[in-house]
């Protein structure tokens, strides 16, 4: 398979994640979309890694996954505390930044 098909797929998955972040109001789902975007990036990494014939890209995938795991842990903790305070995880209702 050509490299570019993987990249196209990666771009489409990424965009799907972006759209999800933009239109969903449930913080958990927004989080999942972020994971989706990270995965799309991972796909591109691995595809290019194969194309270049070296393992560096996959090492980066490893790092991305580590960071993603940390991020999910923190993010979910934040969501839990927000829910405890406000009884909601609707991002539209968490608007204390309003000017």
């Amino acid at each position: 398979m050509e490299l570019q098909y993987y990249l196209i797929l990666s771009a489409l998955l990424f965009t799907t994640g972006v759209i999800g972040v933009l239109i969903r109001r449930n913080a958990i789902i927004i989080f999942m979309c972020i994971e989706l975007m990270l995965n799309a990036a991972n796909l591109a990494f691995v595809a290019i890694s194969r194309s270049l014939g070296e393992a560096t890209g996959q090492v980066f995938v490893f790092f991305v996954m580590t960071v993603a795991a940390a991020e999910v842990a923190i993010g979910l903790a934040i969501i839990v505390s927000v829910f405890k305070h406000r009884q909601t995880i609707n991002v539209d209702e968490v608007n204390s930044l309003k000017g």
Binding site: L97, K98, G99
Partner: peptide, 17 residues
């Protein structure tokens, strides 16, 4: 300009995108 400060995080992300 303050009307742009909706407090809605998604509105900010939209402008970023």
């Amino acid at each position: 300009l303050r009307r742009l400060q909706t407090g809605l995080v998604q509105a900010y992300i939209v402008s970023m995108v």
